[in-house]
């Protein structure tokens, strides 16, 4: 089963690397967002208040955009590609073979997690090279665990959403429409400190805010201890678990659109 999932993931990854649209939305867009937000709002000398002190606003954007990168790979790209595979009969044809269902599902999720981890590494490298932000050694483990937990949770949410989308062309706009407002109210595009209370409170409901916050805690040089944001991670995982339950009940191998 695990062998089969790894095998499928290898082929999914190969197909991903040949798809320019996926690459743009999953790899290029997060880098672009980081550079733009850090340049426009980060500028020289701008700082942002975080737990334990001030950090440069450019540095503040790195963990938020890592959250965006994780969500682009595990939610946006996964929803778009799984919906397309389902509507084009690719999933149905795979289902007609002896390959275990769980291997197909886990294989595609693994591809998304690999993309998310690669994206996080690229953004960390940019943060280090351009903004001089280094991950403290004692919180490195927390950062890795947070990236992985966030990636897996958003894969589960992605699988839950695919059942609601009947048209493969609607997948990308639908995930964008869902996520863009959340990026704004979750501290990804605008620091939470700069938002009115009611908007910040609304952001607290959704997993984006908690993933961004958990990444910030692990990335923030003022953080003391190991950098695990336990409550945030728990809320992200709870959203993921809810997504998994919905996905298990509603996932379809057959096209829904006709």
């Amino acid at each position: 089963m695990i062998n089969m999932a790894l095998r499928l993931s290898g082929y999914d990854l190969r197909a991903f690397l040949r798809n320019r649209q996926s690459q743009f939305f999953t790899l290029a867009l997060p880098v672009l967002f980081l550079v733009i937000f850090a340049s426009v709002l980060g500028g020289s000398g701008h700082t942002t208040q975080v737990a334990g002190g001030q950090i440069s606003t450019s540095v503040y954007y790195v963990p938020g955009i890592i959250a965006l990168g994780i969500i682009a790979a595990c939610f946006g790209n996964l929803v778009a590609s799984v919906t397309a595979q389902r509507e084009r009969g690719v999933l149905k044809r795979r289902r007609a073979t002896p390959v275990p269902a769980a291997a197909v599902i886990a294989g595609r999720a693994l591809t998304a997690v690999v993309n998310a981890v690669a994206m996080a590494a690229v953004l960390l490298a940019i943060g280090w090279a351009a903004y001089g932000a280094r991950v403290p050694g004692r919180t490195a483990l927390a950062l890795a665990v947070t990236v992985a937990a966030g990636a897996v949770s958003f894969c589960c949410l992605g699988y839950a959403i695919t059942s609601l989308i009947r048209d493969e062309d609607a997948a990308l706009p639908a995930t964008m429409a869902l996520m863009l407002p959340l990026y704004f109210i979750s501290g990804v595009f605008v620091p939470v400190a700069a938002m009115p209370h009611w908007l910040a409170d609304a952001g607290e409901i959704f997993p984006v805010r908690h993933l961004a916050n958990a990444l910030l805690v692990a990335y923030n040089p003022h953080t003391t201890g190991l950098g695990f944001a336990g409550l945030d991670l728990l809320i992200v995982a709870a959203w993921g678990a809810a997504g998994l339950l919905i996905a298990l009940r509603t996932f379809s191998w057959l096209p829904l659109g006709r």
Partner: peptide
């Protein structure tokens, strides 16, 4: 199947290698 499109992003040989593994 009556309607099914090829695996996106894979060549003919890659498609068959993938399915052969099943």
């Amino acid at each position: 199947l009556q309607e099914s499109q090829p695996e996106p992003g894979l060549s003919v040989r890659e498609c068959l290698a993938l399915y052969a593994g099943f």
